[in-house]
Amino acid sequence: MRRYSSDWYWYYAINYTLVIIIIFPIYWTLISSFKKPSELITSEPTFYPHDLTLQYYDQIWNFDRLKRLQDTESEDSESSGVEIESKFRLDGEGVKRPFMNSAIVSAGTIILTIIVCTLGGYALTVLNTPLKNFFFLLVILPILIPGISLIIPLYKLLKDLGLTNTHLGLILIHTCGMLPLGIFMMRNAFNSIPSSLREVAMLEGSSELKIITSVMLPLAIPGLLTVMVFAMYVSWNDYIYAFIFINSPENTMLNISLMKIALGGSQFEMKWGSLTAGSIVSFLPIIIFYTFLQQYFVRGVTGSAVKE
């Protein structure tokens, strides 16, 4: 810390300036999601909501597709006595179901990604795998072509495999999309670990899997966590695959639902309130996940320092 003491002021001045610049659009999104419509669109912008409202959050979280347009009618439809199977009723569920769907897909993607990328990265770095460089180049390929270019062949493939409209289909696609970054990151992480550590463990007779989990992975934690954050980011924020490959209301992903609410029922509508509130709703989980991983970032780094 002493190293920086002479530039103490500069260090914090730069950081706090950046913080203000970077936070501002997010702050603006946040306060806008609490403003009443008349305060939302005005030529005298307010920098904090003078008249707090939770109407957009209420609308999103308890979003009732049948209630949106006809407030009075919903009671009649309850009392009409017609029982429609719960599966086909969409009212009152809000975005809870889409939220769960997105959580499942994200969790699946994270887990599958770290397994596949750790093994792959290890094999392509530490081990003497044949065709190493060729495989590595192959694995990089998915970032080189826009996803939308492959939509139609992918759709056909998923349909043949029976994976359209399923979470598993999305998980596999997202994991495949994570391969370049994941394997690259894991490769860098394993590369920086001295090979002597592995040799010692091998002399002790450990198996390759044992070496990975007990020796190598603890040292590669910053890389691993980064891969997890990215996997979460990629699957949680995905729009195009979730939009195209999911066809039933009960399997809809969060982003799709939020966009539908924000863009409203008609062609040109733009509901700033719902849009901002929706983005905060989709924003929070990933922030919590990141903050949760932060502590391990630090622990991982100090841990490796101790061992060395």
Partner: peptide, 23 residues
């Protein structure tokens, strides 16, 4: 070498099915 191939195979299979085939 064998272990290496085995370890990299999940990635390669995923890649082959969900990327190379559509490509």
């Amino acid at each position: 070498q064998l272990v290496g191939l085995l370890m990299v195979s999940p990635a390669l299979i995923l890649l082959a099915v969900f990327f190379l085939y559509p490509l």
